[in-house]
Design a protein around this nucleic acid. Structure first.
Ligand code: MN
Ligand code: MN
Ligand code: ZN
Ligand code: ZN
Lengths: 141, 141
DNA sequence: CTCCTAGTTGGTAACTATTATTATTTGCAA
DNA sequence: TTGCAAATAATAATAGTTACCAACTAGGAG
C-alpha cells in the first residue's frame, strides 16, 4: 500500500476514497496545486466531492507531514508532496515552484533573533515572478 | 506643510481631511497598523470616515511610496511610514515589527534566479513569533 | 471670490480564500 | 455483521479587502 496512505493509517486516520484521490492527484502533479485546482481535477473522477473535504484533508495531510503548504502573498496557498523544508521561486503564470535550497533563517538573521530575544513561530520566504516558459509565452509568438 | 502630504499633491492627488488623518495616525504610531486599527483610531476624531476610504488611501500612499505595506501570512496587512526596503520580525502578540537590515535576495539566491532565467516580480521574507515583551506578558506575572 | 468638475468620499454589496456547522454516511475494529 | 467514532457533503459563516455608485468637495480657471 502507498506509504503516504499508510502514514494516515499510522496516525489513526481512516483511508477514504476522497483521501486516496487527493494524494493521487498531488503525486501526479509536477507542481504544487491550490485547493481549488485539486478539487477541479478530482471532480473529473468523483464529481460529488466537497471542497470542504479537500481543504480539511489538505490541512490534515500537512499536519501529519505528508504534504507541505506554500503560503503565497495575496494568492491561494499551494500544496505539494512534502520534500522537506524548502523555499521557492513561484511562477505567477503557471504555478510552478522552483526549489531553492537556501533558508534565510541562519547566520546574521539568527543572531538578530537572539539579540532581540525574539521567539520564532514560523518564517516565510518566497520569490514570485515568471518562469522562463511563461516569459516566452508572453514575448515570443 | 508636511512633506508626505506634499507628496500627495506633487502626484496630482488632493489633500483631504481623511488623508491628513491617516498620515497623522501612522506618523504617531510606533508600529505598523492594520487598516482596521487605523480606522479605529481615526474614528475617535472623525467617526464618519469609511473603511473603504482607509483601504483606498493606504493603498494609494503605498503606490506613491509614502507608506510601505507588510504582507503577513494568514493575517491582515500592516502599514507604516516608508523607511526603505526592509524585512522584519513580526510579533503576533502586539504587532510590533522589528527591522532586520538583511534582504535574502542576494548572493546564491540571485545566482539561482539567473540560472533559472526567472523574472522576479516581488519577494517576501518575514519571521513571525513573539517579541520579548509579549513573551514576558505570557510567562511572568 | 465664485463656479465647475475631476477627484474623492461614505455606505454597502460583492468577492476570494478558507473555516465552521450539522445532518448523514462510512471505514474498520470487535 | 454490527456499532460507532470518524468522515463527508452541503452550505452558512468568516475575515480581509475591493468594487460600485450616488453624493460631496478640493482647489484651479475665470
Ligand atoms: Mn526556511
Ligand atoms: Mn528584500
Ligand atoms: Zn510559469
Ligand atoms: Zn509583541
Amino acid at each position: 500500500m502507498n506509504s503516504r496512505l499508510q502514514e494516515l493509517s499510522n496516525c489513526g486516520f481512516k483511508i477514504t476514497p476522497q483521501r486516496r484521490l487527493i494524494l493521487d492527484i498531488l503525486q501526479k502533479s509536477d507542481r504544487p496545486l491550490t485547493a481549488e485546482e485539486t478539487a477541479e481535477r478530482i471532480k473529473k473522477k468523483e464529481p460529488r466531492i466537497s471542497v470542504a473535504t479537500i481543504y480539511r484533508n489538505l490541512n490534515l495531510l500537512v499536519e501529519i507531514g505528508v504534504l507541505s503548504k506554500l503560503e503565497i502573498a495575496d494568492a491561494a496557498a499551494r500544496f505539494q508532496i512534502n520534500q522537506g523544508h524548502n523555499h521557492h521561486l513561484l511562477c505567477l503564470g503557471c504555478g510552478a515552484a522552483i526549489k531553492i535550497g537556501i533558508c534565510p533563517l541562519q547566520g546574521r538573521v539568527e543572531e538578530l533573533i537572539q539579540e532581540h530575544g525574539f521567539s520564532v513561530d514560523s518564517h516565510y520566504f518566497e520569490i514570485t515572478g515568471y518562469c522562463r516558459e511563461c516569459q516566452l509565452k508572453e514575448t515570443g509568438k
